[in-house]
């Protein structure tokens, strides 16, 4: 594995020989959430992960002031920096928002898109207000017991009760500062709706969603499936919002089938 800097962003290039497969992580995680996918895919694909601006090992040199557009531009800059022709790109939740905007801005750079537990709609007013309150709380009180509260809603009940998995996720969350989490929350609040543009997308798309996902539940994925012409939808059993960690075997199976079908 080679570590590369793309501006403020730290990129992890596993240098496999196949076609590029770039993973974009969820809020409030970092590249480590893809460990089970890196092990599975690095022998067949050129697997690449990175930390979102301000997360994990990536910094921000402008006081963590950015929008969803900045996050999408970061993806395009990574592709440029690594001189990749076309990329299979996979994003979960916030990663999915980033992937959608990057793909819609420069479709020619991508050979397929994989969205897990994400949605095409922007925040509605109610969602915006509750996100704003969360940002104010983070900046006033710090992270506090946010990871525990969050994980309770994040994970399928049975997985939440698994101490090993719980600790693994909590440790990853705790690598991010309150300011980085607030900055990314602001970026999510400034995302736009992609519903109109997804209708015109010709790319092969795989949509996955955890059966017990309460953050981006099945109807959000069904709507994207209806919008995108060339899309396949798969439901991951025994999983909440964090499908690649909660049920990596099924997640990897569907991803692997999709990638071999399109190549």
């Amino acid at each position: 594995m080679k570590e590369i800097k793309s501006g403020d962003i730290t990129v992890f290039d596993y240098e496999g020989s196949g076609s590029p497969l770039l993973f974009v992580h969820a809020f409030p995680m970092n590249n480590k959430m893809w460990n089970a996918q890196v092990s599975e895919f690095k022998s067949k694909y050129r697997v690449i992960t990175y930390d979102i601006r301000g997360f994990g090992r990536s910094k921000d040199s402008f006081k963590n002031i950015y929008t969803m557009e900045t996050f999408a531009n970061d993806v395009l800059e990574i592709i440029g920096k690594l001189e990749l022709k076309t990329v299979n790109i996979c994003g979960l939740s916030m990663g999915g928002y980033i992937v959608q905007r990057a793909v819609l801005k420069a479709t020619e750079k991508f050979s397929s898109m994989i969205l897990a537990d994400s949605k095409a709609e922007r925040d509605d007013d109610k969602g915006m207000i509750s996100r704003s309150r969360f940002i104010d709380r983070l900046m006033k009180e710090g992270i506090g017991n946010f990871p525990d509260e969050f994980m309770k809603r994040l994970l399928y009940e049975k997985k939440y009760q698994n101490p090993g998995l719980y600790k693994l996720i909590k440790d990853v969350i705790n690598e991010q500062s309150a300011k980085a989490l607030a900055g990314a929350s602001i970026a999510m609040a400034t995302r736009t709706s992609t519903t109109e543009q997804l209708k015109g997308l010709e790319l092969p798309v795989l949509l996955m969603v955890g059966e017990q996902d309460t953050f981006s539940p099945l109807p959000n994925t069904e709507r994207m499936h209806n919008l995108i012409k060339n899309s396949v939808m798969k439901i991951i059993p025994e999983s909440g919002h964090l499908t690649p960690i909660e049920n990596p075997i099924i997640f990897n199976k569907y991803l692997s089938e999709f990638l071999s079908q399109i190549s």
Partner: peptide
């Protein structure tokens, strides 16, 4: 020193 705020912060 820190620039993470929203319209809701302004109203508050």
């Amino acid at each position: 020193e820190e620039y993470q705020y929203t319209m809701e912060t302004y109203a508050e």
